[in-house]
């Protein structure tokens, strides 16, 4: 039985002088497999854009509805911690980018080093986040039954000028700070969850990189994980100004 439409006149298989062991049977060339992988990863990142997109829309809506509450609640977040964390995450992304380069130029030692640095900075980020969350817990700013709005209705006084450090909110508006903190925890929590998943994957990739799997010409996992890691960076790049920097010039 004839199983083909038109037989190919010459098979091109011989043209590949060395094909990677990771080349899967249904791809004809490494190039094709690699581009398919990158494309698939980007499609996955589209789903991430839409996933966070829903949250960003919720933020946009409530920030416009309850602007005073969002301003007051946002000023509870620590700018130094947020800025340092942004720098940490950018550094982590930077080392990830260098890791991709190291894999491409087949430097195994450098690749492992850069992956470890990426992991280290990722963990540092989560560490700082832990202290930020802890402070919210102590101040009863976690949404739920124990949420406390007193600080927004009666802001503490500035010790030198004896004026409130923040515009006092009406109790009704002060309640809306809970919406801000709900979004704050969901957005940063989802971001942190993506970081944790990323760090787990990093551990696995580092172990494999240490065995030399990615420095023999097969770099797709490093490259595609890099895309994921940079995407998580981008989410934070938007979260930082939107959550921490709403209005930092009180009294004007």
């Amino acid at each position: 039985m004839d199983n083909t439409i038109v037989a190919t006149h010459d098979t091109h298989a011989e043209e590949h002088h060395h094909s990677l062991p990771q080349l899967r049977h249904h791809f004809e060339t490494e190039q094709q497999q690699r581009e398919a992988g990158t494309f698939g990863m980007w499609l996955f990142l589209l789903t991430e854009i839409m996933f966070f997109g829903g949250l960003f829309f919720a933020y946009l809506l409530y920030r416009n509805w309850y602007n005073p509450a969002f301003v007051a609640a946002s000023n509870q977040l620590s700018i130094p911690m947020g800025t340092v964390n942004t720098a940490i995450l950018i550094s982590s992304g930077f080392f990830m980018a260098l890791g991709v380069w190291a894999a491409e130029v087949r430097k195994q030692g450098l690749l492992v080093l850069f992956l470890l640095l990426t992991t280290l900075f990722g963990c540092l980020f989560l560490g700082v986040k832990y202290f930020e969350y802890k402070e919210k817990w102590e101040k009863h700013h976690i949404p739920g039954a124990n949420f406390d709005i007193s600080e927004f209705v009666n802001p503490p006084l500035n010790p030198t000028t004896h004026k409130p450090i923040e515009e006092p909110l009406s109790p009704d508006m002060a309640k809306k700070t809970q919406v801000f903190f709900s979004l704050y925890f969901v957005m940063t929590g989802m971001h942190a969850l993506h970081m944790i998943i990323g760090i787990v994957l990093l551990g696995w990739l580092t172990w494999r990189a240490n065995r030399g799997e990615f420095t023999e010409g097969y770099v797709a996992p490093i490259e595609n994980f890099g895309l994921y890691w940079h995407f998580v960076d981008i989410v934070w790049i938007f979260l930082f100004p939107l959550l921490y920097l709403i209005n930092r010039h009180p009294g004007t």
Partner: peptide
Amino acid sequence: TIVILFFM
């Protein structure tokens, strides 16, 4: 955009 264009 910079991250997307260059890092990615």
